[in-house]
Amino acid sequence: MENIENSRRKFLKIASHALGGTLAAGIAVPLVGLAIHPWMRETVYGTEDFIHIGKMDDFPIGIPKKMTVTSSKMDAWNIFEGLVMGSVWVVRRGDNSLNVFSTNCPHLGCGIDWGADVNQFLCPCHGGVFDVNGKKISGPAPRDLYSFGTKVENNNVFVSYKRAI
């Protein structure tokens, strides 16, 4: 009698562990699946890969023009429209190709100006100098100006502002 009772309890213990484990797993899977959502999906992002910054005609050949980049941002459920993401220097070349540079110096990120009198980009912080093609001429910067990819469609200029090259 005692023995039967003991083996019955033993069985109940094993069965309880198995069933309890199944139940816990059945609850944990969707819970974890939901909790790790930010790993599975981008939650904060710009809505456009290429952002419109103006018409081709807006840019005179050979003279850099500073443009503000505005775009929409998704922040989980919210959409924020017309946010200023930053600004870029746009240089239209003779063959109508475009160079779009970051306005931040590759040295320490200061805002770069265009020196119209010397035809060079000048960094006011530590004296970095770059030519109209973004090439480093002098100063402490480790590299040429950062640039962004562009796309022209029907005379409209778009810039890929996500990643600087």
């Binding site: 969707p30 819970l31 699946g33 939901l34 959502h37 599975m40 999906r41 989980a76 459920w77």
Partner: peptide, 30 residues
């Protein structure tokens, strides 16, 4: 777990529940 998605304000509550319900994998189930 849902509190990790919910935002209690009159401008964001509905949006956050919408997001939980429609844009996450198991949100609707939880």
């Amino acid at each position: 777990v849902m509190a990790g998605f919910y935002s209690p304000s009159s401008t964001s509550a509905w949006g956050s529940v919408y997001y939980l319900q429609e844009k996450t994998s198991f949100g609707w189930f939880i």
